[in-house]
Every structure is written in C-alpha cells, then in structure tokens.
Amino acid sequence: MASHRRPARVTVLTAAAAATAAASLGAVPASADPGTGTETARTRVDRLFEEAERATESYNEADEKADALRRTVARARDGLARGQERVNRMRGVLGSVAGAQYRSGGIDPALALLLSSDPDSYLERASALDRLTARQSTALGELQREQRRLGQRRSEARTALAELERSRTEVARHKRTVEGKLAEARRVLASLTAEERADFEERASRTGGREDAGGAPGGPAGETAPAAADAGPVSSRVAAAVAAARGAVGRPYVWGATGPSAFDCSGLMVWSYRQAGISLPRTSAAQRHAGRRVPLSHARPGDLVTYRSDASHVAIYVGNGQVIHAPYPGARVRYDPVNMMSHVTVTRV
C-alpha cells in the first residue's frame, strides 16, 4: 500500500506464535493417525495459503481502486473550490455594475434626456451605458454557465465519494478474509509438532534449497525445471529489474506490501520493475496481461511467470529454470523452480 496505508504484517511460522497457539489448542489427539492427520493438516495449510493469496490479490485490486478514487475525489474537490471562487468573483463584478446602474439610472432615459442641460453629453453617456449593459449581459450568461458547470462538478464529486466509500468497505472485507485465512493456517500449524512444522516448511519451500555463493539453488531429488532456452539478450532496464529481485531475496512476505523491506508476490514484481523505471499493474492477474505471452521454453530473465488458472501468484524468471518470488506469509523471498505450480504463463514486459 502507499504511504497512507500500513499493511498488516502477518508472520506465520515464528516459534513464538506457534508456541502460543499450541498452548491454547493443545497437541494432536493421541488417537489420530499421525501420518494421515499430518498430511491432512499440510494439505489444509496449503489450501489456506492459496486462498489467502487469492484474497490478498483481491485486496490489492480493491485498494488500488480506492487509491484512484481518492485521487479523483481530491481533484473534484479542488475543481469545486476553484469553480466556486470564479463564481464569487463574477458575482462581485456584476453586483458592482448593477449598483452603479441603480445609482445613475434611476429615472426613465427619455425623461432624463428631456431634462438634461447637455443632450449631446447625455447621449454619449447613454451609449457607454448600453455598451456596459451588453458586457454585463455577456458576463451574466457566463456566470449562469459557470454555475451549471459547478453543479455538475458537485454531482460528480458526490458520485465519486459514494464510490470511494463502497470501495473502502470492499477493501476492509478482503482484509478480513485474508486475516481469517491466515489465522486459521496458524491454528493448523500450531497443531503440528515442532518436527512436523519444520518438515512442512521444508516441503513447502518446494526446492528445499538455499541460495549460495555458487548461484541459484537446485530442486529436491526427482524435481527438475523444464529446460528454458534463455535465448536472446535482455535490455538494460529488464536486467535492472532482475537485479532488484535478486537483491530482495531473503526479505519477508507481507501481504499488501510493495517493498522495499517486505513484499507480497505481485508487490515484489511492482517494486523490482519500478527500480528499472518500468510501471507494472498492482495485481498478479493484471501483470499476466502486462506484455506479450511467450512459451515457457523461450522464457528469458525478466519475464513474469504467473501461476494457477486465475493468475493468483506471480514470480520473475531469472534464468536456468529458476524464478524469484515472495511465496506466502511466514516465508521469505527466494528462488524456486519455474514449474513449482500449475498453469504456468510467461509474459514478456
């Protein structure tokens, strides 16, 4: 979120949170089948994280809309203030002219001419007064048009403000959904033993690897990323985006965050490309359409890789069959194989 908002920082796998929840919920019942129960818990946590991520992207979309509406309302209010100021000035000018006419033209013009000791001078003044009256009529017409424009601006401002209030309600609803899914995931994780939680975290990393001085991590036994051509040079701006993503490795996932100290999945893409002077849409679904599609076999560093049928997760391809992404709450930005999830789509910005 922008500086006016402070996204909730949700950490899932901390030892303190797990210990507190475990104390309140108790251990897994002794009668439960450890293997089946643990696998069910893992599957449930995976599902909750996926649902929370979808809700996070919906939150991001609603929040982006609310930001745009806030700017619209601010512009409308500014326009209203300037329009009202113009109307007030025009009313002041017309009021001065009307007062002058009242003071000098209080008798019938024909009678004034008959009584005038200098008819020629009177006719000159009358001609000037006619011209002044014509200008006054023009100014009056402009005042009326400005008042109509001001009324239209007021109506537009009221509409935008009502839409902003609806959008704020939608943002709050998505926020509650995210927090509810994550709270439930914490409760399920707390039901696992420390060893099971560690095993879950290792399995959930999908690669089980860590970046080292020698380069990107490898996957677990039997899991290999599809060969990618990494063909063609990348521009200096795309290379800068990749470098920014590499520099973010190790920073925490925080839903709704766009850096620089924490990210959600689409927020990492926005921030990385922003460092290269390129603006991306805020949500992963919109990022899927931020460029042209290319086959996975032709992916090259800097391409955006979205996952799932609804594009609710996104990563940046960095070469050698690897991506960098912000996985889920409690995890940190890291490398993983490009084929870590289903429905892979590659977009070249």
Rank of each mutant, 00 (worst) to 15 (best):
R42W: 14
D46H: 08
L48E: 11
F49Y: 12
E50G: 13
E53A: 08
R54G: 08
E57M: 01
Y59K: 12
D63P: 07
E64S: 11
A66W: 13
L69M: 07
R71L: 08
V73Y: 12
V73P: 11
A74D: 13
R77C: 03
R77L: 12
G79T: 13
G79N: 13
L80R: 13
G83K: 03
Q84W: 10
E85L: 08
E85S: 10
E85N: 10
R86K: 15
R86N: 11
R86M: 06
R86D: 11
V87H: 13
N88T: 15
R89Y: 04
R89D: 08
V93W: 07
G95P: 09
A98Q: 14
G99A: 15
Q101V: 01
G105Q: 14
G106N: 09
G106A: 11
L113P: 07
L114P: 04
L115V: 00
S117P: 08
S117T: 07
S117K: 13
P119S: 00
P119Q: 05
D120F: 00
D120N: 10
S121E: 15
S121V: 03
S121Q: 14
L123Y: 02
L123S: 11
S127K: 14
A128Q: 14
A128G: 10
D130L: 02
A134Y: 04
R135S: 09
Q136I: 00
T138C: 00
A139D: 04
L140S: 12
E142N: 04
E142W: 00
Q144K: 07
R148H: 06
R149D: 07
R153N: 12
R153S: 06
R153I: 01
R154I: 00
R154W: 01
R154V: 04
S155Q: 07
A160W: 06
A160G: 06
L161M: 05
E163M: 01
E163W: 07
L164R: 09
R166S: 02
S167A: 15
R168V: 14
T169C: 03
V171D: 02
V171M: 04
